[in-house]
Amino acid sequence: MLESLTGAVELGLLYALMAIGVYITFRILDFPDLTVDASFTTGGAVAAVMISNGGSPLLATICAFGCGLAAGAVTGLLHTKGKVNGLLAGILMMIALYSVNMRIMGKPNISLVNTDTLFTSIEGNTVLYLLVLAIVVIMVKLLLDAFLHTDLGLALRATGDNARMIRSLGANTDTTKIIGVSLSNGLVAVSGAMIAQQSGFADMSMGVGTIVLGLASVIIGEAIFGIRSVVRATLAVILGSIVYRIIVALALRVEFLDTSDLKLITAVIVVGALVIPTVRRSMKQKSVARRRTQELIAAAGSQGGRS
């Protein structure tokens, strides 16, 4: 049990950067970007190819980041300059990247077993390992928090919040969107690179469903930990990623569920997390409206309503 718990925390931290990436597009830019399904694999592929050819794991991870940035920038360009619908732009890039990923890897999967990765030196000590992962993720979070409070970061946030207003204040919303989508995919690719190094292989299908995993983490995190500020929201996303992994680990302990049911479980979690708050909100609104109306009627009545 403890082992599956530490395993869940480990995966949660590794996927947290991907979840933060999805948070940037989905929540900040209000742009559901499906590119991540492929750019996650791109990150894993670039890292695996470089490391298996004797490259430095750190350099490989940085290159994965760069490739993710580039992939996101193309999606952003398609959407803003090419005026392609956001969902379609993501899907097109996802398809195109599939071929690119195949070219990068040259074969459907690459093994990193018996190769030095970022984690080789600390893998033996679970506590140290988790601590280092947590510190890396927190540092990325703090950097992102800082960025989102700079002038450029404010413009990026306003782009998703009120694009017309920030344009009237002189920001080019095409540029801010491209920056946001690009940064998002960069983080997703880093996450892919880390997963490839942790699991010891990269394969063509490792990114399938990334967008849904990311959404699950974002939504769970927001529901449990709140989104009062940007600093709070990014923390919520990281914790959401961990909680999601714990939920999955628990679900897999149920007798009749199989590993292949994972995607269904994820979809159910996302649907639940999306639908339940909506239903609760509308029920609450109705009851408040009813109560207020009755109060107002009572108040009017006590003043001696004339007929």
Partner: peptide, 26 residues
């Protein structure tokens, strides 16, 4: 105005009206 951002952040964006936006604190 941008509804999910604070009064201060909204004013910061207006303060930068028509100027280049970089990595300076909002």
């Amino acid at each position: 105005t941008a509804p999910t951002m604070s009064i201060e952040e909204n004013l910061s964006m207006a303060y930068k009206r028509g100027k280049a936006r970089g990595f300076g604190w909002g």
